[in-house]
Design a protein around this nucleic acid. Structure first.
Lengths: 348, 348
DNA sequence: GCAAAAAATGTAACGGATTACATTTTACCA
DNA sequence: TGGTAAAATGTAATCCGTTACATTTTTTGC
């Protein structure tokens, strides 16, 4: 591959002139410029970006830490990131971490070793914690070159992009309450996640506001997979006094739960309502179509990238917290609560 | 950030010794080695990988061109790639191209400008074609630093990883024929794709072997989306003599098709069988669970990455074509063909 | 104890583009 | 036309780690 010196030789100018022709053409006379451009073409010259980046210290790479790309919601978020990154001439390095701290640390190290300029984390965990804090003695606590999106840390040392999960869960629970449901179960995400905690909080907010007592047995653990929704639903249906509605913290679990419900011979909506969260493409094509909370997934990605670039360019002094809007999408999987069974007393 | 010269100063040795301590410790005496390692720690030294790569000319980055990460199947393939890449100390640059040639060319240029060492393409299209062929005069037609996976070019100038789509489609069609179906429709993928062509060929192979005439009206176009499956099914059901089975070229379209069938008041399996392709996680949780062709998606990714690394390391002189196995997964969405309606004559 | 071989370490060039600073050329006005 | 400002171009340092080659130190064998 030809380099700038060869072009300079061909054009009979100095390397500086070649560089300027390409970077700041106004500084070069028209005559010289043409000579150089001809030489560039003749040599088939393409600047070696490794060299450019080495010198500038900017890689124009961003690392994305995602628990799993195989998750439909995350895939949409990543699409959005890609879009914004491409617009801004950045490339996206994918870090499929499987939620493993070691793996996250390995990818975070790419930032420290100048393989990437910054990092976007989709999980509530600071991957830099694991690395020895570089300049902890430094008195200027600059922002970390990181953005936390979707599932955010409570005290993130960086910009965050988040949904008001508490309000969204509250809205969905209110929807179910308005349909007459009183025994509303929730299939949760991973226990430690702030996201799970917020959604449970929103759920309890709505129950409390409606004067419906909270029942611990209606809170079932899940891990966002189809299978875990299926399993959790099985447990809930086996309760002595099973719920009339199940609110799942994501759509996959809701689809898994519906499957279980139908296998048991019950009708979704008529016998038991099911709601999800995320509004993935499969939600509208579920049977029945799934009531859910729509999240602007691609917008999460775009916003996260833009914020990160702002951090990298030093445009931010404080870490903003961006809250994106949600939308309650009512489809056919939720319906009026069935009339209470014979011997069941209703203390409302 | 500290550099190697600072470490050398701290350890009172030359930069060469520091580098050797880190790269080839056997060449350095134990005493010196310890001194250097202490200095490395004291300085918090991390080698600048940009510099290393700039000098070595290897970026250890691989670009992945994927039509859309939002596709569940591709997401799994990428997971596999990530796994193999990480194992081999490579990083994955994501190129979500939306099937756009321009975009693909932009990412392919990353290889030419030394931002990445090689490229994996998941679509049947050579992104380097769009770029002026670098050294076409060169008499050694070396392998392109590229691997084509999943949907491969007919005359790919690089290693390929593929499924025997023709055989797989044939196997599924045979399954449907064995159930007594004679009017078997197929919802296709994008028309120009070799993948679509091969699956249609396999479908026709099976029909022909069974002596069932091919009916053009039973071939319906799709684009792999849920909605397109839904729409195509609507068209097929509206035929004067509708099919008793629909074989979709991916699971999303099959799920979309089932939705349409059920909306029409028909029962999947009992009235009309539906089959998919890919075995995405949602297939097992569809209602009814979807009969499909399981593809080793993650293995596609892993194999593609390993082949690409082999190419980059010059271990391959010819471009191998790796064929991965498929598996016919029979679930409840396919069943015996319904007894022919009254006035319908059966010419078998 | 000495020469020769082996081991350890050091010096400096290198990779390719950018850019501060120096130098040359051109333009302009008196 | 001489002189100065402005424009154009050139020179060489710089980013940082690696490594060929040179040099110094240690080890080995007799």
């Amino acid at each position: 591959m030809s380099n700038i010196r060869e072009v300079a030789r061909l054009a009979e100018v100095s390397v500086a002139t070649v560089s300027r022709t390409l970077q700041q053409p106004d500084l070069v006379s028209l005559k010289t410029r043409n000579k150089v451009l001809a030489a560039v073409k003749a040599a088939g010259y393409k600047p070696n970006l490794m060299a450019v980046r080495f010198r500038s210290g900017k890689t124009h790479n961003l690392v994305v830490l995602v628990p799993t790309v195989a998750n439909v919601f995350f895939a949409r978020v990543i699409s959005g990131m890609q879009e914004a990154a491409h617009e801004n001439q950045y490339a996206l390095l994918l870090g499929n971490t499987l939620g493993d701290d070691e793996m996250e640390a390995a990818y975070a190290r790419m930032v420290q070793t100048s393989q990437a300029d910054g990092l976007i984390q989709l999980r509530a965990h600071n991957p830099f914690d694991a690395l020895q804090q570089q300049d902890s003695a430094d008195d200027s606590p600059a922002l970390l070159p990181m953005v936390n999106a979707c599932e955010v840390l409570d005290k993130a040392p960086c910009p965050t992009v988040v949904l008001d999960n508490r309000a969204a869960a509250c809205a969905m629970t209110e929807h179910l309450l308005a349909l007459g449901h009183r025994r509303i179960a929730m299939i949760k995400g991973p226990a430690r996640s702030p996201l799970t905690r917020d959604r449970v909080a929103g759920y309890r907010d709505a129950l409390q506001a409606a004067g419906v007592p909270f029942a611990a047995e209606l809170l079932s653990p899940g891990n966002f997979s189809l299978q875990s929704g299926f399993d959790a639903a099985a447990d809930l249906l086996a309760l002595p006094n099973p719920p009339t509605a199940i609110f799942c913290e994501n759509d996959e679990m809701a689809i898994g739960a519906m499957q279980r419900i139908k296998q048991q011979g019950l009708r979704v909506s008529a016998d038991i309502s099911v709601a999800g969260f995320d509004d993935i493409s499969f939600a509208a094509f579920a049977d029945p179509p799934l009531t859910t909370i729509a999240q602007p997934a691609e917008e999460f990605g775009r916003t996260a990238v833009r914020l990160l670039i702002d951090v990298l360019e030093g445009k931010l002094s404080k870490a903003p917290k961006v809250i994106l809007p949600f939308d309650l999408v009512i489809r056919a999987s939720t319906g009026p609560a069935p009339a209470p069974k014979d011997n069941q007393s209703d203390k409302t």
